[in-house]
Computed example of a mutant assay.
Amino acid sequence: MNTEQTLDAVAALVGHAQRILFITGAGISADSGLPTYRGIGGLYHERLTTEGLTIEEALSGAMMTQRPDICWRYIAEIEANCRGAQPNAAHRLIAALEREKPAVWVLTQNVDGLHRTAGSRKLIEIHGTVHHLRCTECPHERDVPDFTGLQIPPPCPVCGGLLRPDVVLFGEMLPQAGIDRLEAVLYTGVDLVVSIGTTSVFPYIAGPVWWASQQNIPTVEINPGETEVSQLVTHRLRLGAADALTALWHRLHPAEPAED
C-alpha cells in the first residue's frame, strides 16, 4: 500500500472501532516543539551532564535520594524545555475521538501533561507528570503549572522534607495503579491499538501491541522511523503524529473539532 491507501485503511479501522488504545511517546509532542531527549537532535543526545554523568544516572531514583540537587537540576531542565508548550493536532484529535466513542484510552510515556491539557480523561500517565509534586517524607502533594520561582530542590512547606515531581525515575518501579489500569483496559477488550511516536523499547509499551497481534486485533504504528514493533503491526504510517492524525480525522469528519 502507498501512504494514501494506508491512511484510508487506518481511517476505516478508527471509524469502526469503539474501543481504542493509543500508546504515545515523545514523538507525539515533537510537533509541540518538545525535544525527544535521547533521540538524534534530542536534549541529551550523545552528551553527558556537567558532572560527567549519563542522563540515566542523573535522573535516577538513587540520585534523587543521594544527591537530589543533581537530579532536580535536570528535571528542571526538562521542565524548562516543556514550558509554554501547547497540545498539537495529534493530542487534540485523540481527545476528540474520546468524546465520540465509548472507550478511547491513552497510555503515554510522556510527563509533559499535554494529553490532559488537550482534554483526554481516560489517561494512563505511566511515567507520571512533572506538574505534580509530592513530599518524600509526609503526605503533602500539590500541582504546579511550571517550576517558575521554585527553589531547586524545593522543600516541603509542611514538614521541610524534600519535594519531588511525581514521575518515575530511572531504576524505579512503575506505579501499580497505572499497571492495573492498563491490564483492566486490555482485559475489557479493545478493537484497535495505535502506537504513536515511541520507539517501544520498554516491554510495557511494546506489550499491548504484541498482545493485540496475538489476539488478531488490528494494530497501527505512526512513526517516521523503525521501532521495536514495526514488524508486528497491521499498518504502518511513516508520518509525524500531527500530520497523520489530521489526515485520518479529515477522512472521518468534514472539519477539525472545536476546542473545549
Rank of each mutant, 00 (worst) to 15 (best):
E46Y: 01
G15M: 06
R38P: 12
E56L: 03
E228R: 15
E226D: 13
G119F: 06
T54L: 03
E183D: 14
G113L: 06
G15K: 03
T129I: 09
A206H: 11
R134K: 12
E79P: 00
F170K: 04
M1I: 09
P68M: 06
G161L: 05
T50K: 14
F147Q: 06
D166I: 09
T50S: 08
I126D: 04
S213R: 15
E46V: 07
I217A: 07
A17T: 02
T188G: 01
L237H: 15
T246W: 00
P175F: 05
I40A: 15
Q214E: 15
V106N: 12
I78H: 00
V193I: 12
L174W: 04
T65M: 09
L174Q: 01
I94V: 15
P257Y: 08
Y187F: 08
G128Q: 10
N223D: 10
P153S: 01
G171C: 07
R47L: 14
E141S: 15
E51G: 10
Y74D: 03
C82Y: 11
R92K: 13
P87D: 08
I20P: 02
T6Y: 02
S230H: 08
I217M: 00
A26G: 09
C159F: 02
E51V: 08
Q5R: 13
F147M: 08
N216Q: 14
L43P: 04
E98G: 05
L53G: 09
N81L: 11
H253G: 13
R67F: 01
V14A: 01
D243I: 01
C82R: 14
P139E: 06
G15Y: 02
P257S: 14
P153G: 03
C71D: 05
A96P: 02
P68F: 01
G189S: 15
P35Y: 09
N110Q: 06
L114D: 07
H127W: 07
E77L: 14
P155L: 13
V10L: 04
E259R: 13
T136H: 00
E259W: 06
R83D: 09
L169R: 11
L114P: 00
G25W: 06
T234S: 15
I222K: 08
I23Y: 06
Q18I: 05
V167E: 03
I196A: 07
A62H: 12
E79S: 13
R142G: 05
P218F: 06
K101N: 04
I222N: 05
L252W: 06
K101H: 03
L13Y: 05
E51A: 13
M64C: 07
V158E: 14
L162T: 10
R238W: 00
D243T: 12
P145L: 11
L245E: 02
G27E: 12
H140G: 03
W72K: 10
Y187P: 02
L7Q: 13
A206E: 04
Q86H: 06
Y204T: 14
P257F: 09
R92W: 11
A184Y: 03
S120K: 04
F202R: 11
L43Y: 04
A258W: 08
L53W: 11
T36Q: 15
L114T: 01
C138Y: 05
H132A: 00
F22P: 03
Q231G: 14
I23A: 08
F22R: 08
P35S: 15
E256T: 14
L107S: 12
L114Q: 03
I75H: 01
E4V: 00
G160D: 13
S195P: 08
G225R: 00
E221W: 03
G171P: 12
A76W: 02
N81P: 01
